[in-house]
């Protein structure tokens, strides 16, 4: 099914938020695809890096529904290759931040028994709380 989307000046709010958080001007992206072509993890992603750049340009919040930015390892290959010198990794980080700031917890820490909590790796636990999805 092909989804219809609206493009209105309202969408700019989301674009401006990503620009502000990332410090990048996402509209400078010329959609050449260099970031996606060189991304070592693109095979694991549901959308390509250039696609999330495009969705942000159009101000479409549905970009937050994809898991690609969580697959991104921040290896900076895209950043060092972008012919427009856009820091694509920072844009991914901005998208992750927008999701994290919603402060939605996917695990109720109180429900985990103390004995189990003691042996769970802390970093994995914190990640599991908020990072996994959007």
């Amino acid at each position: 099914m092909i989804k219809k989307v609206e493009i209105t000046p309202e969408n700019d709010k989301f674009l401006n938020k990503v620009n502000e958080l990332s410090g990048q001007v996402v509209t400078l992206c010329e959609q050449c695809g260099t970031c996606s072509g060189g991304c070592p993890l693109v095979a694991e992603m549901d959308i390509t890096p250039s696609q999330w750049m495009r969705l942000v340009q159009l101000g479409l919040k549905e970009v937050l529904d994809y898991k690609a930015v969580w697959v991104c390892a921040s290896c900076f290959t895209c950043t060092v290759r972008c012919p427009r010198k856009i820091d694509v990794s920072k844009v991914a980080e901005a998208l992750r931040q927008i999701i994290l700031r919603k402060a939605i917890d996917y695990i109720d820490l109180k429900a985990i028994p103390k004995e189990e909590l003691a042996c769970l790796p802390q970093i994995a636990l914190v990640s599991a709380c908020r990072k996994f999805t959007g």
Partner: peptide, 12 residues
């Protein structure tokens, strides 16, 4: 060659 077909959104 590695590239993205940005129209088909496929990695070539």
């Amino acid at each position: 060659i590695k590239a993205e077909d940005t129209l088909a959104r496929q990695i070539i």
